[in-house]
């Protein structure tokens, strides 16, 4: 079989899993700027699935597509170090404020520009929102079938892909014709580490906005090695309708944000001493909570 064309959707996210004390402001709210920006974990699981197909079917190409600010080019480089071939960064102020519907609109337009392709693959959800909506919405906008919660791609042959899915209480194996949109569950294998060869090859990959403050020598280097260019697309590049983007294209509005404030209960503080533990267990037995 000849190689496939795979588009991996990835997102750079603030690492909301471990909000340490450094990231807390004096008023108890989170200082988002202090959180490290990382490659969304399940998108790495998705990249690994794409790389496994590429291992199996030489000639397969992997294109990473992301949407975000200029610094999100970092995750495209990360993907290149692991074996992705090229990457596109959708970046434009007019994307700001997009909810999942507006985001999937923009991403689906970019994917259409990258047509033809066989597989669009993404993480199930991003840790900054946990909505799991963009994958299915992109599939709908492209008019393609979707396979969500993929754990393992079992086979790809004759235009049909067979995938094992992880459900709440079990697993299911489904077959779908390509092209198809797949979202990958965190139970899928972790992504491989950077490959030394690719890390050297793509270490100097830069987007246009990253190039603005680089030297003449570097510009020449990139001219000689066009694969070092991470392409940036704005709304004009994907022929987007302004009404369907950003805030105006987002049906969901945030009415209210409340910082999480801990309302204290009257708490009895105990130590690990025998007396304290025995007191507690007796009290719980006496008030019929246990026993």
């Amino acid at each position: 079989m000849k190689g496939l064309k795979i588009i991996v959707l990835a997102k750079q996210v603030p690492d909301t899993r471990n909000v340490g004390k450094d990231a807390m402001k004096a008023d108890g709210t989170v200082n988002r700027a202090a959180l490290p920006a990382i490659f969304n974990p399940e998108d790495l699981n998705a990249l690994e699935q794409a790389l496994r197909i590429k291992d199996k079917y030489p000639g397969t190409t992997i294109t990473v597509l992301t949407m975000g600010p200029g610094r999100a080019a970092e995750i495209i480089r990360e993907a290149m170090y692991r074996g992705a071939d090229d990457g596109y960064l959708l970046t434009d102020r007019k994307f700001a404020g997009s909810d999942t519907l507006a985001t999937s609109y923009s991403i689906s337009l970019a994917i259409r520009k990258l047509s033809p392709f066989d597989i669009v693959i993404a993480g199930r959800q991003a840790i900054d929102g946990d909505t799991a909506q963009v994958g299915p919405q992109v599939a709908e906008k492209l008019g393609l079938p979707q396979i969500t919660y993929a754990e393992d791609i079992l086979s790809v042959k004759k235009g049909v892909i067979t995938v094992k899915r992880r459900l709440e209480r079990g697993v299911e194996t489904v077959a779908a014709p390509m092209p198809v949109v797949i979202t990958v569950h965190s139970s899928a294998p972790e992504c491989r580490a950077r490959h030394a060869k690719y890390t050297i090859k793509y270490k100097h990959a830069r987007s246009l906005s990253e190039l603005q403050d680089t030297s003449e020598d570097y510009l020449q280097l990139q001219k000689d090695r066009p694969y070092l260019l991470i392409r940036e697309w704005g709304i004009d590049d994907i022929d987007a309708d302004l009404e369907q983007l950003g805030l105006s294209g987002s049906p969901t509005k945030v009415k209210k944000i409340e910082n999480v404030v801990f309302t204290s209960r009257e708490s009895k503080v105990l130590s690990a001493a025998d007396g304290d533990i025995e007191y507690l267990m007796k009290e719980l037995i006496d008030n019929h909570t246990i026993g």
Binding site: S264, R265, S267, K268, V269, S271, E278, M281, I285, I290
Partner: peptide, 25 residues
């Protein structure tokens, strides 16, 4: 802050004691 009882310490020490004093009482 939402707990009715807070036990400060190492759970590998505390849990066996909870079992012991539950059974004793």
């Amino acid at each position: 802050q939402i707990a009715d009882y807070t036990i400060n310490g190492d759970l590998t020490e505390i849990i066996p004691k909870m079992i012991k004093f539950y059974q004793k009482n």
